[in-house]
């Protein structure tokens, strides 16, 4: 019997999409996984799941609009597994603050509110606490590149629960984001999952540590394919 193959699309309009493909192809799932780049609605229609990569969210949203992909993407994120990294996380959030004049088009859902943007001089790398990944005791080296910050979670009563998959120790937040009481606030949440949606404000694809890719494929893509 031939194994069921899941096709993961990577939105390839602008940004670090090649890195995601390389990471997925390093996973030990060769026979169960096919990875394609998505630049057109036809390519999106062939996908079981999607990764929206890091890049410039304004550029990606405009190119999606110009390529006729915006409405199909909105439909896709309703019931398919989708992972957004950095700019992708912004596009998957419900409300974005501090966006460009005239506002930023979003693909909705996911029940998180992300806030743009750290100035680039405040981009940093830091060790993350991860749960739910393989080897959770091993910290993950997170690259934050002009990273968005989660400001508030607002899950609806009907929505699946929001799980924190990765977080940053409060003392590792850039000084501008630190609060005196070091309370457990959404700002320290850097990896979130809600149902089939997965958000990371940092860039797992810039490392050789593929545990987030493995998690997305195992927990969101394969799990959805089975049901």
């Amino acid at each position: 019997m031939t194994p069921v193959v899941s096709r993961i699309g990577i939105l390839a309009l602008q940004g670090a999409f090649v890195e995601h493909k390389a990471a997925l192809e390093r996973l030990p799932y060769h026979r169960k996984l096919e990875v394609i780049f998505v630049k057109t609605p036809e390519e999106l229609a062939q996908c079981d799941a999607l990764i929206i990569p890091g890049g410039e969210s304004t550029t990606i949203a405009l190119l999606a609009r110009l390529s006729g992909l915006f409405e199909p993407l909105k439909e896709f994120v309703k019931d398919k597994p989708v992972w957004g990294t950095c700019a992708g996380a912004i596009l998957l959030s419900q409300v974005a603050e501090n966006t460009k004049k005239g506002g930023q088009e979003l693909l909705v859902v996911a029940g998180t509110e992300t806030k743009l943007t750290l100035m680039q001089v405040e981009s940093f790398e830091a060790e993350l606490t991860v749960s739910g990944l393989k080897d959770p005791e091993r910290p993950f080296n997170g690259f934050f590149i002009r990273a968005p910050v989660v400001v508030k979670l607002h899950p609806g009563p009907e929505d699946p629960p929001i799980q924190v998959i990765a977080s940053l120790s409060p003392n590792l937040l850039p000084p501008a984001l630190q609060s005196p009481d070091h309370s457990d606030e959404p700002k320290t949440f850097v990896g979130l999952r809600q149902g089939l949606h997965f958000l990371t404000t940092f860039h797992p694809e810039l490392t050789n540590d593929d545990r987030f890719h493995e998690y997305f494929v195992r927990e969101c893509v394969f799990a959805n394919k089975r049901t």
Partner: peptide, 23 residues
């Protein structure tokens, strides 16, 4: 370097350039 939060490493610098790709 502040604890294990590091600003301005070469990885972070080249990371921004990677986000500009295709642009």
């Amino acid at each position: 370097t502040q604890g294990s939060n590091s600003l301005g490493t070469f990885g972070v610098k080249s990371g921004l350039a990677q986000m500009l790709k295709g642009g």
